[in-house]
C-alpha cells in the first residue's frame, strides 16, 4: 500500500478537557514542545505553523477541531527540502477517556511510501508526548529542549 504512517499512543492521567487545553493552548504548548511553539487560531481552514528557535519547521492547515475529542492538521515539513517536496500529510490527535486516564493517539500519515515527512516528524513525537505526559501528571517536563 502506498502509504507511510505511524501511530503513537500514550495514556495520561488527566481529563479530556485538561488534555485538550494542553494540546491547543499555545502558551501552555511552549512548556512541553521542546523549545518549539505553534501559531494558529485553531479554526477549521486556518493556517497552522510550528516554529523551532524562530525557524519555521512545519506548516499546514486545521482540518478538524472537535473539542475535546479530535484534532486534525494538514501537515507539511518545511526544513528538509525532500520532505517539503512531498507536500502535505495528515496529523490526527484523538482523545478517549479510559478509567481515569485519557488515551491519546497521534496518527501521522501521508499517501506515499518511505516518506521523508514521516521520518522527519516521527523522531520528535515520542519526546513531545513523554514530556506532555510528565507535565500533566507531575507538573514537570522531562526535557526543555533537544
Amino acid at each position: 500500500m502506498a502509504k507511510s504512517e505511524f501511530i503513537y499512543v500514550t495514556f495520561i492521567r488527566t481529563t479530556p478537557k485538561k488534555l485538550w487545553h494542553a494540546l491547543t493552548d499555545l502558551e501552555f504548548g511552549r512548556k512541553y514542545w521542546m523549545g518549539g511553539h505553534q501559531e494558529t487560531d485553531w479554526k477549521v481552514g486556518s493556517p497552522w505553523k510550528l516554529f523551532f528557535e524562530g525557524q519555521l519547521a512545519d506548516s499546514g492547515e486545521i482540518v478538524e477541531f472537535k473539542p475535546p475529542k479530535r484534532l486534525a492538521i494538514k501537515w507539511r515539513h518545511e526544513m528538509n527540502p525532500k520532505a517539503k517536496a512531498e507536500g502535505y500529510g495528515l496529523c490526527v490527535m484523538a482523545l478517549e477517556p479510559m478509567k481515569g486516564m485519557v488515551k491519546l493517539t497521534v496518527t501521522h500519515s501521508i499517501a506515499r511510501k518511505d516518506s521523508k515527512l514521516i521520518e522527519a516528524v516521527s523522531g520528535g513525537w515520542p519526546s513531545i508526548l513523554s514530556n506532555l505526559k510528565s507535565l500533566m501528571e507531575t507538573g514537570k517536563v522531562l526535557m526543555k529542549t533537544w
Binding site: 504512517e5 505511524f6 503513537y8 500514550t10 519526546s127 508526548l129 505526559k133
Partner: peptide, 9 residues
C-alpha cells in the same frame, strides 16, 4: 504499529 513512546519513558 510499533509504539516507541514507552521505550522513550
Amino acid at each position: 504499529f510499533l509504539n516507541p513512546v514507552p521505550l522513550y519513558a
